[in-house]
């Protein structure tokens, strides 16, 4: 009975559960909610975390660390463009 594959399987199951939750969250919140784009970016943070722990579980720590450092930049760019964009919002 090896311990490493069991831990690997549990981590991958947690990652897939997080991905399903983020997919549900993206489809669930409609446009009538105020500032719904920020809520969608927050929920996509779950998918980021799922990808990072899956990369660590699949023996790619360098790729996981790179994702860990670079993932916030995309979210920050989208939010900044929406905040200063031409579309009217409060």
């Amino acid at each position: 009975m090896e311990l490493i594959p069991i831990i690997q399987s549990i981590v991958l199951l947690i990652a897939s559960a997080l991905l399903i939750l983020s997919a549900i969250g993206i489809l669930r919140f409609k446009d009538d909610l105020d500032r719904v784009l920020y809520a969608r970016i927050h929920i996509l943070g779950l998918a980021d975390m799922a990808c990072i722990i899956a990369l660590f579980a699949l023996y790619n720590p360098l790729l996981g660390a790179t994702y860990f450092i670079l993932a916030p930049f995309a979210a920050h760019a989208i939010a900044n463009a929406y905040y200063y964009g031409e579309e009217k919002h409060d």
């Binding site: 549900i24 969250g25 669930r28 500032r35 943070g45």
Partner: peptide, 18 residues
């Protein structure tokens, strides 16, 4: 925060503020 956001995704208690 991951557990917190996962719970909020399920029960829909979301209200974004800046």
């Amino acid at each position: 925060a991951t557990i917190d956001v996962a719970i909020r995704t399920v029960n829909g208690n979301v209200e974004p503020v800046v």
